[in-house]
Design a binder for these strands. Structure first.
Lengths: 291, 291
DNA sequence: CAGCGATCATAAACGCCGTTTATGACATCT
DNA sequence: AGATGTCATAAACGGCGTTTATGATCGCTG
């Protein structure tokens, strides 16, 4: 028996529907169906009766679910105890690639100045990873690239920056002062299968202003992999302007995209998080963002 | 966070030593070392300080461990609730191969007669699997082939039977009335890597009466696999006499082993298990075993 | 009655992660 | 110096939990 199983059954009970529970749990319905079946086999009891309209707890299932809810709550208390201790000493800040550019770095420095006894730990994630990491408690706050699912989090947009296209040195567009999105239509574009589809499409500007679809190039998991492939000429990439500064490689050229919607970056934290350190960090970021 | 992690840290705290905790948890020390490290990374706190003499909880660790113990206890209550409901209707009886021979079958039948509303579910395991299954709560009682680790279980030896050697038809020893163990020394012997070493050695009569080691043949996971290989002449096998009856294939011959220690079978149940059904089954088996 | 949509179940494929054995680093004791 | 005990790390491996695709069933609607 594992907490994952207990979390699953309590969410199933909440929704009375495997499909909706699966969505809430960020897994697929068959995974949840199988996990429920395995749990029932393991404890030797049917917890839910299945109907075409959804699932209903059995009589025995109701008591199991009540105990399961308590166990899940007890586990949350472990996490809360750990949070409390850690948040006396450490603040974990999540981000991907260049985060919110200079704002990220300045905020961390200013916060550290105000809280000299607190260690600020930067945590970098692969494409699209900082949101789930926040949700799972791996970080205390995060600079999240939008669009993102911030369910059950609080957030404030703190940064915005234009987008650029990354090209290998010597590329036909490399000497331009600016490039429109449709001008890149014939170039394979770097993309990732790690982030949600809407995020990928947003970054690829898909559909294109002329209605077409991008020419999809190689898949990658993170900025370094992506830039390796761009430098060798396998594809181009779209990125925030801060990446031009943070990843100024001699084999790459960054050219502004003239008609792409800017990236917005939100600072996000868990909805129930009341810790003074988190509040303090939010405050610092807000102040710096307003300058 | 998962219950496995919380169980691990509570047992580590109990023993103050990763090696001993690993033994108690039936995992290897490096697995436990790695799991502890991952847990500490996940919650962002050091739970234990490491010393050459063992591990000591940190101050923060002590509170985490207290909360963890509560969560583990809460999860045990889930299992207890499920047990209570199921044990009103179902008794799961574990065994391997031929179990305790006829005693197994007669006990199940007699118990079912006395408890007509209870479903008796036989659960068969691969070599050495019924003991761990009992420990993990997959069955309520089990006929366990000794030697076995029955830590935290209660047990009573209820059956004993001589051993036989399984041979393919036409084998040079197939027409004998009995065979001594050393007479089989030149024959490859079926064995398993699924059960503990002491169990394997006991079954192989290793060391042999003349001090030699068996000639190890093919590995197998369960009785059917084993018998397939014996029938095709790849190796011989040692087995309890009840298997001669339960697996009387036309391509196999079973000959008594004249000098092998008999198999003893224990009926075992979990040490804390107080359920009337389990007690009732133990009673039935005891009565039948005394006849 | 047929078609459609919603629901849960099952199968096949796949990759990740938790395990194992082997080994190393370090401390302590004789 | 050698032996022993402890925890950490590496490489290899396999099991299991996930995904996508699909099927079965039921209920509703035209």
């Amino acid at each position: 028996m594992e907490l994952r199983q207990l979390r699953y059954v309590t969410v199933i009970a909440e929704h009375g529907n495997l499909g909706r529970a699966a969505n809430a749990l960020y897994v697929s319905q068959p995974a949840l169906s199988y996990a429920l079946k395995r749990f029932e086999a393991e404890i030797g009891l049917r917890v839910f009766d299945r109907n075409p309209s959804g699932v209903v707890p059995t009589e025995a299932g109701r008591e199991v679910l009540a105990a399961a809810a308590e166990a899940v709550a007890a586990a949350e208390r472990v996490a809360a105890v750990a949070d409390r201790h850690r948040l006396g000493q450490v603040l974990r800040v999540g981000f991907e690639a260049s985060g919110a550019g200079e704002l990220t770095t300045r905020a961390r420095a200013e916060f550290a100045r105000r809280h000299p006894d607190v260690r600020v730990v930067p945590r970098r994630f692969d494409w699209g990873g900082e949101g789930p990491a926040l949700r799972e408690g791996q970080v205390d706050v995060a600079f999240v690239w939008l669009p993102a699912d911030l369910t059950r989090c609080r957030s404030v947009v703190v940064h915005s920056e234009p987008r650029v296209v990354g090209l290998p040195v010597g590329h036909r567009l490399a000497s331009r002062e600016g490039v429109s999105v449709v001008e890149t239509n014939s170039e394979p574009l770097m993309w990732t299968d790690k982030a949600p589809r809407d995020w990928v499409d947003w970054w690829a500007v898909n559909p294109r202003p002329d209605g077409s679809e991008p020419l999809w190039g190689p898949q990658n998991d993170n900025v370094e992999e992506m830039l390796e492939q761009v430098a060798e000429g396998a594809a181009i990439c779209f990125a925030p302007q801060s990446m031009a500064a943070y990843y100024a490689r001699p084999d790459l050229v960054w050219v502004p995209l003239t008609d792409a919607e800017p990236l917005r970056v939100a600072l996000a934290w868990r909805g129930f998080d009341d810790s003074p350190l988190v509040r303090g960090f939010v405050e610092v970021v807000r102040e710096l963002a307003e300058r």
